[in-house]
């Protein structure tokens, strides 16, 4: 699994991921209060200037925008038709700036740093009774399961192909889910057996 992260040592890379997420939220909010087209152009240029600062090229900036390109064009045209060119260019610029800023955050922070930031961000909830240890376990487990489920999914698909059912989503999803849930029971047992959390309560059990 390859994340969009681009390793590097720039000042932007060295900022804590949490700070970058907060920065993104603030920039996003700020952009909504900027209405003037000239100011929005300045905002967009400022965000673009962050790319070389982070050791990234303008090509990276374009790559970030590419998946949105069609939507951006449709949006600007729709706005131009409905509300005139000024609103149209304004909202196009605003959206581009926002997405480019978000792109910087993702390109300069590793997935594990981002998840660390999420865990840290959630830790104050510990006092409200949220079990941060469990959230952290869930994050790791999900990363562990994604390749595993993809592998099981491929197996199921092969089995269904043999029966000519490989294009039926139901025929793929049901065996995948049932197998996954069955695995889940044993995985939970294994986690408990390795001393996670407190003792499980006595009770009826489905496994044999």
């Amino acid at each position: 699994m390859i994340a969009a992260y681009r390793p590097g040592t720039s000042i932007v890379h060295r900022l804590p991921a949490g700070a970058k997420i907060v920065g993104l939220a603030m920039a996003g909010t700020f952009l909504f209060f900027v209405a003037n087209v000239a100011s929005l152009v300045v905002c967009l240029l400022a965000v673009l200037a962050l790319y070389p600062l982070a050791g990234l090229s303008l090509r990276d900036a374009l790559a970030t925008l590419r998946p949105l390109f069609v939507i951006l064009v449709i949006l600007v045209l729709a706005h131009a038709w409905l509300n005139g060119w000024e609103v149209a260019s304004g909202s196009g610029l605003r959206l581009a700036a926002l997405v480019l800023f978000a792109g910087i955050v993702t390109l300069t922070s590793s997935a594990s740093a981002m998840m660390g930031a999420i865990e840290t961000g959630l830790s104050p909830l510990g006092r409200l009774g949220v079990d941060v240890e469990k959230i952290s376990l869930a994050l790791s487990l999900a990363l562990r399961f994604i390749p595993m489920i993809a592998a099981v999914g491929a197996e199921v698909r092969e089995a269904q192909r043999a029966r000519g059912l490989d294009t039926s989503l139901v025929a793929l999803a049901v065996p995948l889910i049932v197998r996954t849930l069955k695995m889940g029971e044993e995985i939970a047992d294994a986690i408990d057996a390795r001393g996670f959390g407190t003792t499980r309560k006595d009770g009826p059990d489905r496994s044999t």
Partner: peptide, 17 residues
């Protein structure tokens, strides 16, 4: 329970799949 956490992670992964 641990089992709930596992199911949650499994369905997050399932959604990804």
């Amino acid at each position: 329970t641990t089992r709930d956490i596992v199911y949650i992670a499994l369905f997050a992964a399932f959604t990804a799949a």
